[in-house]
Structures are given as structure tokens and as C-alpha cells.
Design a protein around this nucleic acid. Structure first.
Length: 494
RNA sequence: GGGCCGUUAGCUCAAUUGGCAGAGCAAGUGACUCUUAAUCACUAGGUUGGAGGUUCGAUUCCUCCACGGCUCACCA
């Protein structure tokens, strides 16, 4: 459909300009979207390969390269043009000289826009300014871009656009690309370290008939043929423990969980969790292993053990502090040991700290809430908070000297909960009682099939979950989980 | 869900005690055979997020809505 110049909106004008060039290319017999263009190496590979060579060395024996990439800048200079060809990671300058090209190739070059993909071939040399460049002899359009990219210098700044059109963010903001490169490296490092420690990676159901292993509202879906409501998992825990029953002694799963709760700078409805289960381990051993695993990843990915995050310097060097929950409350508040004894005194302490809905909470929940209100935000360097109330820990084994307290820890870094682990309860009768108590308290279902598995014998086991997105936040100095996830959940436009 | 803040050209940003909405990049035309945020000249580009209201006049003030950010609540 032809539109009149007057009625055209600005973007549409820009698109129309590009479409006109698209048509021009076709008229010249150039396919703007050809099938293939085989490159010998990427732009950044070529760059690192020839970067060390001087102008003289290149001149003596000029290497001919064949590269594909996106056109990111053109500096026209009459019958000569300089251009930047990018592979996303790095770029190399193109030197395009009218006299060195077929006339048709020069005309093709004139129909290019910033953002187009093109393939080039030619010898590598250095310009007088010393810039490594390809003297283009052949030039092919590989994909014509119909819309303009964000500005080359400032990139894309609008936070909403950056999340909605992540490809533009990645293209134009190198620091954003770096976040996700670090994410990839960190996850790969975690996998390698677990495998080196004898763990095997497994996959367990994401769609579960009874969502268990955590307390959170699940997403519901429906299987038509079975006519069965299924829940997206809130944790893989109960399936991983079935595998320990089945004789896999060290298993891990590094994948998505789904929780139908609020969205915040620390919560995304789908998030990546590492869970691992280790037969014959207990929570003490898990703390040692967690220190080793995370500090190893931090060092491998950042090159050191100190990380700048949210205005703090976080020191990951070992050993990390281990503090009982009760002691953490006492250390980081004005409360005394007496304030934590008995329902009445704890309620008073909670009221003084503005804890909401106090009467709905169990004693154990109240204690955990006191911790959250006092010490938690101050746990900047890695700190294990140990020994949780039994009432809020249905899968953890009690401490030998105190049945109301369990062998459980959470790891806090930068004031965030990063990991949660315990010596797994393996007494099936006790497990059934705990799940029934939990179901009665909070609603929910008892996973009898899980208890059945445990009745066949679960060895002493340590199990842990680590929030990967939050770890990435720490590694990349991001204050919001949205900036550590490529496509975070957003409300649909319009 | 509550409170506060934001939304101006494709992108990055200005501006108005309420009085013709402006720049850089990108785009178009022209000049230019070593530039690199190339340069120079000219041109075009706007329903100031949307809908109402107040006003002679609203981009600016008010109300509602949409989306986003921060924060509290909810929630591990």
C-alpha cells in the first residue's frame, strides 16, 4: 500500500526508506535474504587473530578473510567509506573503496543501512591511523534490517524497552551483554564443579499433580487427555529425594521453578534454582561444600573473591560466618534471650518490630520473622544462618539436643537469601506427621507417593537449593532480578 | 493491593512561573580517497503515553486509565 509523504509517521518514514533500498537491491538482482554465506571465522576471531600483526607484517603477506556481521557504523568519505562490522562481541573496520569494487558492489553498498547484515571478503591491513581493517573486494547483503537500531553512542536506556526488546539491549549495551555472558559462565562453572564432585544432572517433572517441596502458591494447568489439573513445580525437592531412594547418591537439577507470587526486584515468577542431594552428607558438610562451590565460581567468573554489589564490597573468602538464627537475632537487635522465650514475650517483641498478622503465625514462624526484621538485611558478607524452627521446616531433621530446632541453614549474601539447605528428614512416619501438620496449618496436600518412597528407605542425606538468578545479581552488580534474567515477566503491552 | 516518581522525534536528552516544542545521533539531498561518536552545508521528522477536565490558551495544572521504576505489603 502506498502512503503519501505527508501522512507518514516518522518511524514509518524510516522504514519506508529502508524498504525502498530493499526493492532497489532486488531490482539489481541482489537477494536481500540469501540462503547462506559461509564464513571462515567470526569477526572477533579474525580480530584477535590479526590484532598482533603490524602494518608491515600485514602488507608483506596480507591474509584474506571472509566475514559476516552486522553493519553498525558507516563513515562515508566520497569514493571511500569506512564501516564497522560487528558480530555482537567485537567489531572490525571495513575499508570500502569504489575503485576496488565492481560497480554493482559499490551500488549495493550504497543501499545499505545501519543494522544490515553483510558478508565481505578481502585482505586485512592497517590504515594510516593503525586501525585493523578489511579492504573489501567482495560484498554481499546477508539480511536487510527494516527498522533502525538504537543510537550507537548512548545505546538503549529506557528500562522497560530494554527488558521488552532484550535483543536491542544486548545489541546496543555492551554491559548488558556482559551480564548474560557472566550468567552463562557461572552456570557452566557450577555444572562442572558439581560433576567434578560426583554429582549427576537429572531432570524431574515440571508438571506435578501435587506441588511440594516448598510453600508457595503454584501455577495451575490442565492436561486434556488425562483430564487432570497439574501444577508447575514450586521445587523439584521431592522428586530428587525419590532418586536418592532409587540409589543415585549424588544428583542435581539446575532448572526453572515457578511460583505464583508477587513480582519484585528479588522475585520473578519463574526462576532458576540449583537443587542438589547428597547421600551420607549432612548440613555441616553442605556448608563446607557451598563455600567451596560458590567462592570457586566467584573467583572463576570475576577473577577475585571481592565483589562490588549495591554499594557494598562483599568478601567471599573462606571461611564464611556461621551463626545460629537465635544468636543472629540477639546480636543484631536489642532483644535479650528472655524476649525469645515463650509466646507472650515473642509476640511483644514482634509487635515492637511491626511484624504483621502476629496471631496467624506459629512460634517458629514468629522467630524466623524476628530474624528477617532484624539481622537479615545486615548479612552482607556470606553468612550461614543455622538451626531453624522445626515448625517452618517440614523436611529437615531435628537437632539431636533440641527436637524443636532442625539442622537447616540458609545462606545470606548482600542481605538476600541465596541458599536453603538441611539434613534431610528420612524417618517416613515423622515425615508423614510433619506434612499432615503443614497441610492442616496452611492448606495443601500431603504427597503420599513421596512418603511411600521414603518408606522404602532414604539414606541419611543432605539437600540444598541455591537461587541462581540472585547469585547472578551478585556477580554482575545488578540490584534487580529482572536485569539478571533475559526475558523477565512483564505485563503485556496494551 | 497501597504510597511516591516517571512516560517529549526511531534512539539519547533539553524546554515551558500556563504562551509558536528544541538539540545530538539515526534518516533524506549534496560535498569529500585514511575516517573511527568522521567532518561540512541544507532538508525532513512531534496527537509531548491514552481519555476527560480547568483555561482565551495545557506538553506544563487537575481527574481517571495504561505501562514502567522505587518502596511497603503479600510471598521463601
Amino acid at each position: 500500500m502506498e502512503t503519501k509523504d505527508e501522512s507518514q509517521q516518522p518511524v514509518e518514514q524510516l522504514i519506508a526508506n529502508r524498504r525502498a533500498k530493499l526493492d532497489a537491491l532486488r531490482e539489481m538482482g541482489q537477494d536481500p535474504y540469501p540462503r547462506r554465506f559461509r564464513v571462515e571465522r567470526s569477526v572477533s576471531e579474525a580480530r584477535s587473530l590479526y590484532e598482533g600483526l603490524s602494518a608491515e607484517e600485514l602488507e608483506k603477506d596480507p591474509p584474506v578473510v571472509r566475514l559476516g556481521g552486522r553493519l553498525r557504523a558507516v563513515r562515508g568519505h566520497g569514493k571511500v567509506s569506512f564501516a564497522d562490522l560487528s558480530d555482537g562481541l567485537g567489531q572490525i573496520q571495513l575499508y570500502v573503496k569504489k575503485n576496488d569494487l565492481d560497480e554493482s558492489a559499490w551500488l549495493v553498498f550504497k543501499q545499505l543501512d545501519l543494522g544490515d547484515f553483510l558478508g565481505v571478503e578481502g585482505p586485512v591491513f592497517r590504515t594510516r591511523a593503525g586501525e585493523l581493517s578489511v579492504a573489501v573486494k567482495e560484498l554481499t547483503v546477508l539480511s536487510k534490517a527494516l527498522r533502525p537500531l538504537p543510537e550507537k553512542y548512548h545505546g538503549l536506556a529506557d528500562r522497560e524497552a530494554r527488558a521488552r526488546q532484550r535483543y536491542l539491549d544486548l545489541l546496543s549495551n555492551p554491559e548488558s551483554r556482559e551480564v548474560f555472558e557472566i550468567r552463562s559462565k557461572a552456570i557452566s562453572s557450577i555444572r562442572r564443579r558439581l560433576e567434578a564432585a560426583g554429582f549427576i544432572e537429572v531432570e524431574t517433572p515440571m508438571m506435578q499433580p501435587i506441588p511440594g517441596g516448598a510453600t508457595a502458591r503454584p501455577f495451575v494447568t490442565h492436561h486434556n487427555t488425562l483430564d487432570l489439573d497439574l501444577y508447575l513445580r514450586i521445587a523439584p525437592e521431592l522428586f530428587l529425594k525419590r532418586l536418592i531412594v532409587g540409589g543415585f547418591e549424588r544428583v542435581f537439577e539446575l532448572n526453572r521453578n515457578f511460583r505464583n507470587e508477587g513480582i519484585s526486584t528479588r522475585h520473578n515468577p519463574e526462576f532458576t534454582m540449583l537443587e542438589f542431594y547428597w547421600a551420607y552428607a549432612d548440613y555441616e558438610l553442605l556448608m563446607d561444600f557451598t563455600e567451596e562451590l560458590i567462592s570457586g565460581v566467584v573467583e572463576e567468573v570475576t577473577g577475585g573473591l571481592e565483589v562490588e554489589w549495591g554499594g557494598h564490597t562483599i568478601d567471599f573468602s573462606r571461611p564464611w560466618r556461621r551463626l545460629k538464627m537465635r544468636d543472629a537475632i540477639l546480636e543484631y537487635s536489642d532483644l535479650t534471650p528472655d524476649d525469645l522465650v515463650g509466646r507472650e514475650r515473642m509476640e511483644k517483641a514482634a509487635r515492637d518490630l511491626d511484624v504483621q498478622r502476629i496471631d496467624e503465625r506459629s512460634d517458629g514462624n514468629l522467630l524466623a520473622e524476628l530474624y528477617e526484621m532484624t539481622a537479615e538485611p545486615l548479612m552482607i558478607n556470606p553468612t550461614f544462618i543455622m538451626d531453624f524452627p522445626r515448625q517452618i521446616s517440614p523436611f529437615a531433621k531435628s537437632c539431636p539436643d533440641d527436637p524443636e530446632t532442625v539442622e537447616r541453614f540458609e545462606l545470606f549474601i548482600g542481605g538476600m537469601e541465596l541458599a536453603n539447605a538441611f539434613t534431610e528428614l528420612n524417618d517416613p512416619d515423622e515425615q508423614r506427621r510433619r506434612l499432615e501438620f503443614q497441610a492442616a496449618e496452611q492448606g495443601g496436600m500431603v504427597d503420599e507417593d513421596f512418603v511411600l518412597a521414603m518408606e522404602h528407605g532414604l539414606p541419611p542425606t543432605g539437600g540444598e537449593g541455591i537461587g541462581i538468578d540472585r547469585l547472578i545479581m551478585l556477580l554482575t552488580n545488578q540490584s534487580s532480578i529482572r536485569d539478571a534474567i533475559l526475558f523477565p515477566q512483564l505485563r503485556p503491552r496494551e
